[in-house]
C-alpha cells in the first residue's frame, strides 16, 4: 500500500483547524446585531424571572391605600395600581409567571408535536393520515378560540392555561417536524444508515432528529412569543390567572377601568408584553438566519 500513502499525504494534511459547531454558531450569532441585543434582553428577563422575588422594591401583593393609582415616580418607577401596589414589582413578578407559563406550555407542545411529526413523517401511511387530519381540524380553529374551548372544559386557572396553550401548539410543531422529516428521510445519509442495517428508532433518533433540531429551536423561540401573548389574552379574558395575581394579562384586565384616568396601569404591563414578545421574535428571526438559512423566505 506504499503508493497509496504517498498519494494522500498532501490531501490529508489540510484540516488543522478544529471545527466545533458551537464555536461556529457563536461566531455567526455575534454578527446578528439586532437578534444578539434581543437575546441579551431575553437573558435579562430570564434572570429576572429567577431572582425576581428577591429584588422587588415592594411586596407585589401588599396593598397601600395611601398611594392609589399614582403615576410613575422615583419611589414607584412604574406607578401604582388601584390598590396602591407597586406596578414595577408586580411586573417583575409577572415576568416569572409569563415566562414559566409560556416556556412550559411550548415545551410540552413541542415535545408531543415533535414526536408526532417524526412518526408521521417517517412512517407515513395510516398513522400519518390520522395525525395530519387531526391537526388540520385543530388548525381550522383560531388558536385563542381553541384555548378558550379547552379552558371551558377544564376550568380557568394558570395550569389549565398551560395545558390549553400546549394543546394548540402541538399541531404546528407536528407539521413543521413532519415536513423536515420527510425531507431528511430522503437524504442519502439516511439511506446509507438503512443500508448499514440501522434500526428505525436509531435512524430517527440519530440521523433525522438532529437535522430537524435547528428548525425546532427557531420555531420554539418564536412560539414562546405567541404563547406569552396567548397567556396574557386568556388572563385578560379572565380565564387564566386569578385577578389578584401579578400576571401581565390579569394586570391589563384590572387596569381597564382606569384607562381614561390613570393610563399607566394598562400601559406598563402592555409595554412589558410588547417588549418580551418582540424580543423573542427577534431572537427567533436571528436564530433562523444563523441555523436555518434556507427557510428564510418562507
Amino acid at each position: 500500500m506504499g503508493v497509496l500513502k504517498e498519494e494522500v499525504i498532501n490531501e490529508t494534511t489540510i484540516n488543522k483547524s478544529q471545527y466545533s459547531p458551537i464555536k461556529e454558531f457563536w461566531k455567526n450569532w455575534k454578527r446578528q446585531k439586532v437578534a444578539f441585543s434581543a437575546s441579551l434582553f431575553v437573558l435579562l428577563l430570564i434572570i429576572i424571572a429567577f431572582v425576581g422575588p428577591y429584588i422587588t422594591p415592594y411586596d407585589p401583593y401588599e396593598p397601600n391605600y395611601n398611594s392609589i393609582l399614582q403615576g410613575p415616580s422615583s419611589s414607584h418607577l412604574a406607578g401604582t395600581d388601584e390598590y396602591g401596589r407597586d406596578i414595577f414589582s408586580r411586573l417583575i413578578y409577572g415576568t416569572r409567571i409569563s415566562l414559566s407559563v409560556s416556556f412550559i406550555s411550548v415545551f410540552f407542545g413541542a415535545v408531543v408535536g415533535t414526536i408526532l411529526g417524526l412518526i408521521s413523517g417517517f412512517f407515513g401511511g395510516f398513522l400519518d393520515r390520522i395525525i395530519m387530519r387531526s391537526s388540520d381540524v385543530m388548525f381550522a380553529f383560531p388558536d385563542i378560540i381553541l384555548a378558550i374551548a379547552i379552558i371551558a372544559i377544564l376550568g380557568p386557572g394558570l395550569v389549565n392555561v398551560v395545558i390549553a396553550i400546549a394543546v394548540f401548539t402541538v399541531p404546528s410543531f407536528a407539521r413543521l417536524i413532519r415536513g423536515a422529516t420527510l425531507e431528511v428521510k430522503e437524504t442519502v445519509f439516511v439511506e446509507a444508515a438503512r443500508s448499514m442495517g440501522a434500526k428505525k428508532t436509531r435512524i430517527i433518533y440519530k440521523h433525522i432528529f438532529p437535522e430537524t433540531f435547528s428548525s425546532l429551536m427557531v420555531f420554539f423561540t418564536m412560539r414562546i412569543g405567541t404563547a406569552i401573548l396567548a397567556a396574557a389574552s386568556l388572563s385578560f379574558l379572565g380565564l387564566g390567572a386569578s385577578p389578584g395575581t401579578p400576571d401581565w394579562g390579569a394586570m391589563l384586565t384590572m387596569g381597564r377601568d382606569y384607562l381614561g384616568t390613570s393610563s399607566h396601569v394598562v400601559i406598563m404591563p402592555g409595554i412589558a408584553i410588547f417588549l418580551t414578545v418582540l424580543a423573542f421574535n427577534l431572537v427567533g428571526d436571528g436564530l433562523r438566519d444563523v441555523l436555518d438559512p434556507k427557510t428564510k423566505n418562507h
Partner: peptide, 27 residues
C-alpha cells in the same frame, strides 16, 4: 455494504467522522 455517489450527501453532516465510520459497529 454500499458506497454512494455523492460523498457530500451520504455522510451525516452533524456527526464526527469517527462516529460515522463507527456506526456499523454500533449497529
Amino acid at each position: 455494504q454500499m458506497v454512494f455517489q455523492d460523498p457530500y450527501a451520504s455522510l451525516n453532516p452533524r456527526m464526527k467522522i469517527r462516529d460515522i465510520i463507527a456506526e456499523p459497529l454500533v449497529i
